[in-house]
Simulated assay, not measured.
Amino acid sequence: MWNWGLPPHLKTFIDSDVLVGRTFHYTENGPVGHLKGKKAIHIQVSGGTYSREPYTKMDHSHPYLKQVLIIVGMMMCLPSM
């Protein structure tokens, strides 16, 4: 986690590659990802515990990345803790 968000290089990669017509398209039912059946593993490190209240609302990176992966059609595999 970088200032409660994504590192700038990862954000630039997402902004450059998550584009309509390239990694997803819109239908009347919402976005459809072009990467169906692919999986992603999100491993996040931070200087504190942001997975528990009251700090969960400060973690903007995990919800954002999860939504990006859903839009492009990837599933997110979460390890059990």
Rank of each mutant, 00 (worst) to 15 (best):
G33Y: 01
T49L: 12
G21K: 05
F13N: 04
T12P: 00
S61M: 02
I43S: 10
H60L: 13
I41R: 09
L10S: 02
L78R: 15
L69Y: 03
L65S: 05
H9W: 12
S61N: 03
T49H: 11
P63D: 03
T27Y: 01
L69A: 03
V18R: 02
I41N: 04
M74A: 10
R22F: 01
G30Y: 05
K11R: 15
M58C: 06
H62C: 10
P79D: 13
Q67L: 09
G30Q: 06
W4C: 06
H34E: 13
K36W: 01
K66F: 11
G37T: 06
W4G: 05
P54A: 11
F24S: 03
G30V: 05
F13H: 07
V18E: 04
P63K: 03
T27Q: 07
R22D: 09
Y64P: 00
Q67I: 01
F13T: 10
F24I: 03
L69N: 04
I71Q: 09
P79S: 14
T23N: 07
W4N: 15
F13E: 09
K39A: 12
G5M: 13
I43Q: 06
H25Q: 08
C77F: 10
Y50E: 10
G33K: 00
G21Q: 03
G73I: 04
G21L: 04
H25N: 13
M1W: 00
I71P: 01
S51N: 10
R52K: 13
L69H: 02
S46V: 00
M81P: 12
I71L: 03
W4P: 00
L10Y: 09
T27C: 06
T56W: 03
H34V: 00
H62G: 10
K38S: 11
P8W: 04
G5F: 13
P7D: 07
P79E: 14
G33E: 03
P63W: 01
I14H: 02
E28H: 11
T23I: 01
F24G: 02
G5R: 13
I43N: 08
H60I: 04
V45W: 12
G48S: 15
P79Y: 14
M58W: 08
T23R: 09
G33R: 02
M58T: 04
K39W: 06
M76V: 15
I14M: 02
V72C: 02
I70V: 15
L19C: 04
